[in-house]
Design a protein around this nucleic acid. Structure first.
Lengths: 221, 221
DNA sequence: GTCTATATCGCGATAGAC
DNA sequence: GTCTATCGCGATATAGAC
């Protein structure tokens, strides 16, 4: 296919391609290093080494370390919000909650570093995401709490505080990312495998459904 | 009483007193600063300022920054383990779980910084506490899981994976310390008050009991 | 656009007067 | 035992050749 965005008769768009690929490599490396060492403990040299690029390139692409950190966080917030769409008024509560918990557990399994960077940000005061929490996320929580309240009003699940119930789901599912080192140590594992996660996910779903007064896992649709 | 550890006939132990008080002040300040800024982001100058002492005194009392960090963590681990004693084989499951969750929530309310320092340590690989996790804490979890399994075998609560159930309790209760900034923002509060915690604790207890198949909060003993 | 070499600064740690 | 002044390292950031 012909490239569309350029001035003249350049056949490809190598600079755009390379820019994007390098930015992706840096963001991926930065997510891992920020997760391992924390925001202050992470060094530009570590990130550069893991990305396979010289330090100066990081500054060329992202300016300062803080700019890079914000870019990593922005990526994560998008990932973080997506699965909650399962909770819709017309859905079956047990099925919707099962899907939501399973999606959050899968995110904890496949992107633990993302969860850790976010947890670290909140832990230390959420300076970079305070507005996001107070505006966007609060609006989303209000909306999803209303969905749950609707289910309760219709007698489709047990009465409970919808917000605390959502916080419980977040706390439990993210625990398996943020505290994966502890969980593995306490289960006598070196590292949690995919089948560990499958088994744990079934247990977590069962406990969440029971907490909501929905004892039986639904037959999957 | 006479002091025992000294050379001659010193009447009191003023140096011991001052030592202890200064160590306490430093540890308290360090817990707050490590919680706010993370292990790497915390500076000895910040800790000294908050403790109201010159930087050099911190090194006099604790040697290195790492030694100080380990001392803070040791304090926290003791605090962290205490309330789980509620879970005893002969106790009533609902009452024991209620007491345990309430104690963990009270710890989250009164010492959020302690929980945050611990969370931060685990989040970034648990380098300082790996042995503690793999030995002491694992043994403790095994013992308490056996208590819960005993309750289940006796038909006193619903069948579940006792370890995941314990992790759920930790995750949920510690969430209100580690993520207190997020929780407050999402509830539209500036800061969570004691009465917020009282109300939330009742909700959390209810959800935990339901997850364990114990629907009714027990009349308190 | 890429990378080496370096400027600059903040922090941990300590020497040494009191 | 306490505190001031300072050393030295390591990290961010950039200048400038390629």
């Amino acid at each position: 296919m012909a490239t569309t965005e350029n001035t003249d008769l350049q056949d490809t768009a190598p600079q755009g391609r390379i820019r994007r690929e390098n930015r992706e490599r840096i963001l991926k490396a930065a997510e891992l290093v920020f997760a391992e060492a924390g925001r202050a403990g992470a060094t530009m040299a570590d990130i550069a080494e893991r990305a396979g690029l010289p330090k100066a390139n990081l500054h060329y692409y992202f300016g300062t370390k803080e700019d890079l950190y914000r870019a990593v966080l922005d990526n994560i917030l998008r990932l973080w919000l997506a699965p909650i769409d399962s909770l819709r008024p017309d859905a079956d509560p047990a099925a919707a909650l099962t899907a939501y918990v399973a999606a959050k557990m899968e995110a904890s399994r496949s992107r633990p570093a993302a969860s850790k960077v976010f947890a670290n940000e909140i832990l230390h005061g959420a300076a970079q995401v305070q507005e996001f929490l107070a505006k966007d996320l609060r609006r989303l929580v209000d909306a999803k709490a209303a969905v749950i309240d609707g289910w309760i009003a219709a007698g489709r699940m047990a009465p409970l505080d919808a917000r605390q119930f959502l916080f419980m789901i977040w706390a439990v599912t993210q625990h398996y990312a943020d505290f994966n080192v502890q969980v593995a140590a306490l289960l006598g594992r070196k590292k949690l495998t995919r089948s560990d996660f499958d088994r744990i996910t079934r247990e977590v779903v069962r406990m969440v459904l029971r907490a909501a007064g929905l004892p039986e896992p639904p037959p999957h649709p």
